[in-house]
Nucleic acid binder design. Structure first.
Lengths: 130, 130
DNA sequence: ATTTATGCAAATCATTTGCACATAG
DNA sequence: CTATGTGCAAATGATTTGCATAAAT
């Protein structure tokens, strides 16, 4: 299937780069500000196409809408349990875990995701101990 | 809020123990075989109550309905990219990753989840190389 | 007796899809 | 030109919720 460059697709890609880890709805909000006629369906279709094309990463979040990430290199995410913000975590990718996991039950491991949950510096209160 | 023991709740808990990592719909299927009058709403409410009570673990699966796990101890999961089955992985829990992740950006880490993706032994074909 | 749980149906939220029209190549 | 993309609205799938009734304590 050939793929075409449309104005709408470029706006969606730009929105992902300008927002950090937005939901599809967040993208729609920003894009529709500059292009009021765009539809949610088009935003979803373009998000899927860009993920498919490897220009975007989809981050599945338990208990919530998918997030989209302009960075497609291997890395992990953390979600603040208070404000809900999703952020990249700048720590080494644990490639060895995949081998470990595969050895245990004879799976051929393709990938892995780690989602941390915690309280971000902004939401942290003086007496927070976990 | 007080919590009561109902016939329906016990059926839901038993279903989770008998199935492995079922979805809410899977639970509904098994439970309604023995109790045809139970409603999906009740299944969902009981699943939530049991998770809340710490008797069950909810496993969020990217691209799919939540799964429920009778084992509440710390462990990871793998999902077969062919048949979709979700299984526990019997490997050490990486407690040190939480400290690493927290140190990087000043978060107070509460927990983490790892979801592996791969091909299970049953779905694996002779020429599968990943 | 009082409060929590149930069954039903309608509601919500995220996402996908069918269709007629527009547009990129 | 012709296939792919768009806007719209309706459809889907998972889950939640309001309400009157039933059951647990």
């Amino acid at each position: 299937m050939e793929t075409r460059n449309t104005f709408q697709k470029s706006l969606v890609l730009k929105a992902i780069q300008d927002l950090h880890h937005p939901t599809a709805d967040g993208v729609y909000g920003l894009v529709s500000a500059g292009c009021p006629t765009i539809s949610r369906g088009t935003v979803y279709r373009n998000l899927n196409a860009l993920v498919e094309a490897g220009k975007l990463r989809r981050v599945g979040i338990p208990d919530g809408a998918d997030r989209f990430d302009a960075s497609v290199t291997d890395h992990y995410h953390i979600r603040c349990s208070r404000c809900g913000a999703v952020t990249d975590i700048d720590m080494p990718f644990q490639r060895d875990l995949m081998k470990q996991a595969g050895d245990v039950h004879g799976y051929l491991i393709e990938s892995h995701d780690i989602i941390f949950k915690g309280i971000c510096p902004d939401c942290r209160l003086p007496d927070d101990i976990v």
